[in-house]
Design a protein around this nucleic acid. Sequence first.
DNA 1: ACGATATGAATGAATG
DNA 2: CATTCATTCATATCGT
Lengths: 219, 219
Amino acid sequence: LVQSIMEPQQQQLHQQQQNQQQPNEDGGSSKSSFLCRQSSTRWTPTTDQIRILKDLYYNNGVRSPSAEQIQRISARLRQYGKIEGKNVFYWFQNHKARERQKKRFITDIPMQQRGVVNGSWRSEDPIYNKYPNISPGVPSPSSSSPGVLAVGQMSGSYGYGSVTMEKSFRDCSISAGGSGTGGSIGPHNFGWVGVDAYSSSYPYFDKRKSIDHETLEDE
Amino acid sequence: LVQSIMEPQQQQLHQQQQNQQQPNEDGGSSKSSFLCRQSSTRWTPTTDQIRILKDLYYNNGVRSPSAEQIQRISARLRQYGKIEGKNVFYWFQNHKARERQKKRFITDIPMQQRGVVNGSWRSEDPIYNKYPNISPGVPSPSSSSPGVLAVGQMSGSYGYGSVTMEKSFRDCSISAGGSGTGGSIGPHNFGWVGVDAYSSSYPYFDKRKSIDHETLEDE
DNA sequence: ACGATATGAATGAATG
DNA sequence: CATTCATTCATATCGT
């Protein structure tokens, strides 16, 4: 059996984002004469919804919103598409759980020897990660404050604190200038952590992959 | 095009592969993508890695390794090529899922004519609010016969007979209800209320479930 | 080269 | 909160 627990080799930073189509919420009838794939029974968050959710998660430290907050959030998000309270609930649960899980895979080995970098990922600093997203350029009509946060008035404590910012960067630093000869398995990576982040928030870049595989005409 | 609903196929016995030691990480080469395109390459397991993984899966009964096991496994597999914890995690998840999926079809489909390519549901009926209430039918952990040894420690939580859930119907009902330009929570946005399953861990049941029908119907 | 398939990756949903 | 299942997307690979 596996027994020798070698030092946690550096892992490679992977970044992968999938194309997420916007569910046309035009009310069923559509020109999609063909099959209407996806849009099964499960909620498909829109980009805006994800953006807001992540904003709440990272910028506001919302981890486990309460019932009222869920109501507010879902109500607010409903502007951007169909959504229910349970979706919000599950979203936060999953997001938090996955964040921890990812970390657990690479961290956690209680080894005394740690030749790795610095052990940054070992920090549990409750720093609020105000990600440097200064100009989001939200396509929202900039009416009142349809920005992102504040689904209402967060009265009181709603858990600040554990805003682990394991995922602060979204640029892959795998460039690693060198990489000339041989095949270094990898200099230093945090592996799997710091991947997620807020991706689907930039209407500017069309960072989608090249191949355009048509699934359905989403308006 | 008939999408992939299911592919009841076995892995092609084509193990005559060559050692593909993960050419990625070598920098761009290949095509374009100057900017760090995270879509570089997904983990392609080497034959050795696959061998070990399958050995763990079949000979050791490993189905859902825990975090520590994942770390160990990935550490060991790293000898044969680049690998991360999440790769191991996903591998087991996928392997188990697909195996079950396959089995589900062969044991469930009564080999009847299955009018598949029917398509074209004209279901333009936005029947939102079709959330699944807790289904009483819990899968009994019946010890299926994997047919292989299993000396490892199976979490004794697999098995999952043939539940045969014929709930797979999809319609393009992404339409939103009100979605006014405000925060109307009022109207018909009932959803996910009265989920007793979460009574213990889900502290939210705020809305009213006046709609008697639906949840507890049938006597 | 293209299309089908196999499979890695991601995530919504659900359970304990 | 951890774990697991189902479903789907994306892509590598193989067959023709």
